[in-house]
Design a protein around this nucleic acid. Structure first.
Length: 493
RNA sequence: GGUUCCGUGGCCGAGUGGCUUAGGCAUCGGUCUGCAAAACCGAGUACAGCGGUUCGAAUCCGCUCGGAACCUCCA
């Protein structure tokens, strides 16, 4: 019921009603990480954004096949990204296989994603495991006359494609302007045209990873892996292709070219792009000194960070902005997110413990909560507007706390409706979860706290507030918060 | 310089023609409390600047200023 899902399609630059090609199945491909460095903030946003999409589509009842690749090919040469090739040098120095380097960062990536509560995709194919598929696709493109071979390398013929199909549909680039703007760096280019891109590259002898091909020993061009793997697992025509805006050009534009020729169809129905993250208003970059890895966030070890931020704080913060907006990280903003999220979790705990105060359902509350539920669904249906959902949860939070404060009564039915709201949106769809350490307090700790708190109660009973306050202050110093509520004393770490 | 996009109150961040004073954090006042904490109630500040379209614009158009991504091999 209610209205249907609407998705912003980069291809049309408009919101479009989402209609899968083969309902109830949905096929989604998202560009995953290049595993040659520590997972960082730039990895978190697309992973979390498309995790939301994945979760919501499943919530709507679609059977989703979610493919997210791992790029572990062709990048181990050197330098592109200032200094980070140290890892490759290390691989050389320590005589490690390049695949060991890749594996190490894949493991780190998975570990970080698990912490962020990002669900694993249905298939996570590696580029290095699909060399054959890529070669076959390149052969098709050559056969159809849209690629040429120079010195063993294979390039896509962009001007020819432009003439026959029109180039730049996705990114809005115009080929002539591209050519005019591209500076000829070295005249010895193997390409016929600066806009052409590599499908297969001949490997220099020092290039660590190389494979045999019909043309030469070498490695696949970057763009072909996504087209080959999405075709293999999702077919020639699939629903959603996602990725960061930074990949729009040339990567995704090139994918359009490749699939149009190799598959005879523009394979992607909906292109979705998440916006970028800035740090204190600046682009995150290694050269700017504001490059922060996810571990550094979790541990608080980067010099620019005033404290550690939990994975859930990062997740909540990212979901508090719409995925197509730029998002600025700062200590202040993250601290605000941390408090806000804790408030929601705290409210949920309150709700779970809340005793219904009325036998008859409070129609007013029932109506409000159901309206919040509907509004949240509407928000997600409107191009995954997670910030709106969060705002609704805060509204629900206020209602629950009003009950707790004794200014409102609810029945068991009201309570169940509230629980359903939180379970559905906060936990299932937004994928936020309370950390386990607050739940699994060991018994000794609990027992000790009961003893301390009973001593404090005795002090209070004889109006020895100095002692009572002293106990509270000492506990505060070691990170334990005491609250004297109407129902008794509460404590938390 | 080119393409695309953005500029909302102390901070973060939704909203796209005429009720959203969205929401969070911070601030101020109040209630509760032995005092705190938490919670609740209330308050305030906004739509980069200039000009235009319109009965009416934060929302449409133009210009100016400021910011972001991409524009190169490679991923």
């Amino acid at each position: 019921m209610s209205n249907s899902l609407v998705v912003y399609n980069t291809l049309s630059r408009k919101k479009e009603t989402f209609v899968p090609i083969h309902p109830p199945f949905v096929s989604m491909y998202v560009c995953g990480p290049t595993v040659y460095g520590e997972p960082h903030l730039g990895h978190a946003r697309p992973a979390i954004v498309f995790d939301l999409v994945f979760r919501y589509l499943k919530h709507l009842g679609f059977k989703v096949r979610y493919v997210r690749n791992i790029t572990d090919v062709g990048h181990l040469e050197n330098d592109a990204d200032e200094g980070e090739d140290k890892i490759i040098k290390k691989a050389h120095l320590e005589k490690i296989e390049p695949m060991e380097v890749a594996q190490m960062y894949i493991d780190k990536y998975h570990f970080a994603m698990d912490k962020l509560n990002v669900q694993r995709p249905s298939i996570e194919p590696r580029a290095s495991g699909h060399i054959i598929e890529q070669i076959e696709m390149i052969e098709k493109i050559i056969e159809k006359g849209y690629a040429y071979i120079t010195n063993g390398s294979v390039y896509f013929d962009v001007p020819k494609f432009d003439k026959d199909f029109g180039y730049g549909k996705l990114s809005g680039r115009i080929l002539d302007e591209l050519i005019a703007n591209s500076r000829e760096l070295d005249g010895q280019s193997e390409k016929r045209n600066p806009a052409d891109f590599a499908l297969w590259k001949k490997a220099a002898p020092e290039h660590i990873m190389q494979w045999n091909s019909p043309w030469c020993k070498g490695f696949p061009g970057w763009h072909i892996e996504c087209t080959a793997m999405s075709t293999k697992y999702l077919g020639e025509h699939f629903d959603i292709h996602g990725g960061g805006m930074d990949l729009l050009f040339p990567h995704h534009e090139s994918e359009v070219c490749q699939s149009t020729i190799a598959n005879g169809i523009e394979s992607v129905k909906y292109w979705m792009h998440n916006n970028m993250i800035t740090i204190n208003g600046q682009k995150m970059g290694k050269s700017l000194g504001n490059f922060i890895t996810l571990d550094e966030f979790f541990e608080g070890t980067h010099p620019n960070l005033q404290q550690a931020f939990s994975p859930m704080t990062i997740r909540f913060f990212i979901l508090q902005a719409h995925y197509r907006s730029t998002l600025d990280f700062s200590n202040e903003a993250l601290q605000a997110a941390e408090k806000g999220l804790n408030k929601l979790f705290e409210t949920y705990r309150t709700l779970v413990d809340l005793k219904p105060t009325s036998n008859s359902t409070n129609e007013e509350v029932e109506k409000e909560i159901k309206s919040l539920f509907q509004q949240s669904s509407n928000a997600l249906n409107d191009d995954f507007n997670s910030p709106m959902v969060i705002a609704n949860l805060f509204d629900a939070s206020r209602i629950i706390n009003t009950v707790k404060a004794g200014n409102q009564t609810i029945s068991q039915e009201n309570k169940n409706t509230c629980l359903h709201l939180f379970d559905t949106f906060l936990f299932d769809i937004l994928g936020l979860k309370q950390s386990d350490d607050t739940k699994n307090q060991d018994n000794l700790e609990n027992d000790l706290m009961q003893i301390i708190l009973s001593l404090r109660s005795e002090a209070k009973n004889r109006k020895d507030y100095a002692t009572a306050d002293n106990i509270r202050n000492l506990l505060t110093d070691i990170g334990i918060t005491i609250k004297d509520t109407k129902e008794g004393v509460e404590w938390s770490k």
